[in-house]
Design a protein around this nucleic acid. Sequence first.
DNA 1: GCAAACTGGTACGACTTCGTACCAGAAAGG
DNA 2: CCTTTCTGGTACGAAGTCGTACCAGTTTGC
Lengths: 209, 209
Amino acid sequence: MTDQGRPYAGASREERKSARREQIVAAGISLFGTMGYRTTTVGAICEAAGLNKRYFYESFATLEDLLCEVYGRVIAELRASVLAGGGDDPATVLRGFMTGFLSWAQANPVKARVHLFEVLGVSARIDELYRFQGRVIGDELASRLSATIPGPDLTAGQQRVLGNVLVGAGLQMVVDWVISEYQPPRDELLEEMDATLGWVLAAGLAALG
Amino acid sequence: MTDQGRPYAGASREERKSARREQIVAAGISLFGTMGYRTTTVGAICEAAGLNKRYFYESFATLEDLLCEVYGRVIAELRASVLAGGGDDPATVLRGFMTGFLSWAQANPVKARVHLFEVLGVSARIDELYRFQGRVIGDELASRLSATIPGPDLTAGQQRVLGNVLVGAGLQMVVDWVISEYQPPRDELLEEMDATLGWVLAAGLAALG
DNA sequence: GCAAACTGGTACGACTTCGTACCAGAAAGG
DNA sequence: CCTTTCTGGTACGAAGTCGTACCAGTTTGC
């Protein structure tokens, strides 16, 4: 008779399966983030994970499914990082956001490559996940900013615009920074951003007044 | 003896070759912008162009080469559109940029899909072209903005930051707008952006003062 | 007209990846 | 110790695309 699962190497069937899945996910992050998603094959994943191809299909139906799982973990970590900072005034909230983003990208270059480059344009499913998470982060940021300002609240449409502006601007800057091999150093770039924000506010003030 | 080229159907060898190349480029824009780059094959391109596969390789070595040519034309058109507006004050420059971007995206949905979605993450070569053009547009915009402000000029680093912010924010908003199937209508969205900018300036003023 | 070049359609081998199957050896239970 | 399950390595057919070659029919120059 077929046993429904038997301990092996000191672990139950479910434990072994779960451990194999984790090995595959780890190999996915590593390969997607170094050689790139498009050039990674199921065979390469299994080789890196030290597992038979059969075990890939035990946990994932397609390579894209693995990318979804990998990206879900990457974006969760990034979201935690950019939203970690608090702050009672707008400048602190903004700086916390960009500090978290830059620090995360520099501390996790492989995962950063997955988020900033490899997931782009892979499939409609991944694209939707990508943009959904961007909107969540943008909404949260805009809402926090709005809360630090005594004046009138933003309308829903304005909050969406502000969220898009913040996320889009942040992404573009981090991408540029990563491509420039993390130059200038993080704190220097943060100061440049502060100075630029000051310049913009002064310019806007001059134009309004 | 082998003729080095003979008129055919009223056109010289070079004219015919050039016409075929144009047919292929047109088919490339159409297919890349509808079915997507990743699912487009050389065979599909030639079928859409009404040409033999042999003629593809007459003008392009790989499908990626065709994408480079296609994207070069798309980005040139977009650049002309977003930089068309003039303006002597910051708000006019910004509004001209976003108006040009939104109008172009709505008037050329197929090309917009190529720029906003399909070229992403295809290859290092395309990525570099994409980001180079983004930097060119951002620099030009930041420089124009700087010129409308009486105060001190931006440093090179600050101009880069501002350019990244503008291009990143603009891209994110257009992507969001296209995904939302061009809702709300263009002029409504532009007014929301104006209102949001006003809110930000007021908030910044309150925080500074 | 007639030969030579051009054109579009079809066909073909090479290559890669996928997804599954087989098979010999290791680990656990009785 | 011996049977059964599990594991990793290898092998294999299916499918899709690439890039080229062949071939019949058309257009041109002479």
